[in-house]
Computed example of a mutant assay.
Amino acid sequence: MDDVLSVADYYILTPYVYPASWPEDGTLRQLISLLLVTNLGAQLIYLGFAALSFYCVFDHKLMKHPQFIKNQVRREINLGTVSIFWMSFPTVALFFAEIRGYSKLYDDVSESALGWPGVLLSIAGFLFFTDMCIYWIHRSMHHKNIYKHLHKQHHIFKIPTPFASHAFHPVDGFLQSLPYHVYPFLFPLHKVVYLALFVFVNIWTISIHDGDYRLPGPLIEVINGAAHHVDHHLFFYYNYGQYFTLWDRLGGSYRHPSALLGKGPHDHIRKLTAEAAETDR
């Protein structure tokens, strides 16, 4: 994040925003800058990629499903943007610790003990670690004493659109994002790779809400895609995973996607349409 802040300082913040008396490495200035950059970046990623997915990928026929609620897209966007705003405060605290040198982020590949293979291993480690942690955090959010206070807000969207991807209670959203931020404090990670992974996980979260239930055959049993995740929204106790099905299988919560068995949301809409046509005859 210090690289992003440096670019923002050089091109915008120092020449146009802050008075000359505010040093770039000042605590207050860095906190304010991080808050601005984090909010702007996260909102742009969310709204930009969710809109792209909504208009180019999402099947709008799903909006005819009886469990698609009134004004759902507007409600998703309202909840998502507000959640990102409040989540940014604890997130900035972690980013601030990173730029102050408390993490294990590094600038140059030569600083990795294994060189480029180490960078690739760190990516695999990041995906494995975050997938594992998010599974258990997400599953804990379904505990009856927690769910009604936090995670229920996300589950009102039974047939989610890409805009539902970030539509969480802020505490719920932050806790599920925490593994991404904790990883570089525990394990070495290249700064550019970390930034790329941060963007990737946000896009991935959008993709599993995009209503495109297709997956190449061999990957169906491995990758937790939109077909798996819509069953989580519909049936509650299944498919808590983020990227993979591994932890759902180990935790006994895996469900083969109903959309791939002819029993998904599209099939339900087709059935209702056929019944309505038959009634009209």
Results as ranks from 00 to 15, higher is better:
residue 201 V to N: 02
residue 55 Y to I: 06
residue 191 K to T: 07
residue 251 G to L: 04
residue 53 S to Y: 03
residue 203 I to H: 05
residue 70 K to H: 11
residue 267 D to L: 11
residue 122 S to V: 07
residue 143 H to I: 14
residue 66 P to H: 07
residue 229 H to D: 09
residue 106 Y to M: 03
residue 35 L to M: 15
residue 168 F to L: 09
residue 53 S to A: 15
residue 42 A to T: 06
residue 171 V to I: 14
residue 216 P to M: 13
residue 259 A to C: 14
residue 280 D to P: 01
residue 30 Q to W: 09
residue 50 A to P: 00
residue 36 L to M: 10
residue 83 S to I: 12
residue 130 T to I: 15
residue 178 L to T: 04
residue 112 S to P: 15
residue 269 I to M: 09
residue 57 V to R: 01
residue 278 E to Y: 01
residue 256 H to L: 09
residue 271 K to V: 06
residue 154 H to C: 04
residue 5 L to E: 06
residue 90 P to L: 10
residue 2 D to A: 13
residue 43 Q to M: 10
residue 10 Y to E: 10
residue 122 S to Y: 01
residue 31 L to N: 02
residue 10 Y to F: 11
residue 189 L to K: 03
residue 169 H to W: 03
residue 244 F to A: 03
residue 53 S to P: 00
residue 227 A to S: 15
residue 11 Y to F: 09
residue 82 V to Y: 06
residue 51 A to C: 06
residue 209 H to V: 07
residue 230 V to Y: 00
residue 252 G to I: 07
residue 35 L to N: 14
residue 97 A to K: 01
residue 75 R to T: 05
residue 11 Y to W: 11
residue 15 P to E: 07
residue 264 G to Q: 07
residue 200 F to I: 07
residue 216 P to K: 05
residue 46 Y to W: 10
residue 14 T to W: 07
residue 207 S to V: 12
residue 198 F to K: 01
residue 137 I to G: 03
residue 39 N to I: 08
residue 151 H to A: 03
residue 46 Y to G: 03
residue 153 Q to W: 08
residue 117 P to V: 04
residue 37 V to K: 00
residue 204 W to D: 12
residue 182 V to C: 04
residue 108 D to L: 05
residue 130 T to Q: 14
residue 102 Y to R: 15
residue 252 G to T: 04
residue 99 I to K: 00
residue 136 W to T: 04
residue 116 W to L: 15
residue 198 F to Y: 13
residue 192 V to S: 09
residue 158 K to Y: 08
residue 107 D to L: 12
residue 155 H to Q: 10
residue 91 T to K: 00
residue 281 R to V: 11
residue 206 I to R: 00
residue 158 K to N: 14
residue 242 Q to V: 01
residue 72 Q to F: 05
residue 77 I to A: 02
residue 2 D to E: 06
residue 200 F to C: 09
residue 182 V to L: 14
residue 238 Y to G: 08
residue 207 S to C: 02
residue 261 L to S: 15
residue 50 A to M: 10
residue 183 Y to C: 00
residue 31 L to D: 04
residue 150 L to H: 02
residue 169 H to C: 04
residue 274 A to Q: 01
residue 132 M to R: 06
residue 137 I to S: 12
residue 131 D to G: 06
residue 271 K to S: 11
residue 9 D to N: 15
residue 115 G to T: 00
residue 126 F to H: 05
residue 248 D to V: 04
residue 90 P to M: 11
residue 148 K to L: 08
residue 277 A to I: 12
residue 165 S to T: 12
residue 115 G to P: 05
residue 194 Y to F: 13
residue 47 L to S: 02
residue 203 I to M: 08
residue 230 V to L: 03
residue 212 D to G: 08
residue 201 V to K: 01
residue 225 G to Y: 00
residue 256 H to K: 14
residue 197 L to V: 11
residue 240 Y to L: 05
residue 174 F to Y: 13
residue 240 Y to F: 12
residue 2 D to W: 12
residue 89 F to G: 10
residue 62 L to D: 07
residue 280 D to M: 10
residue 119 V to M: 11
residue 96 F to Y: 15
residue 60 H to Y: 05
residue 280 D to A: 15
residue 258 S to K: 05
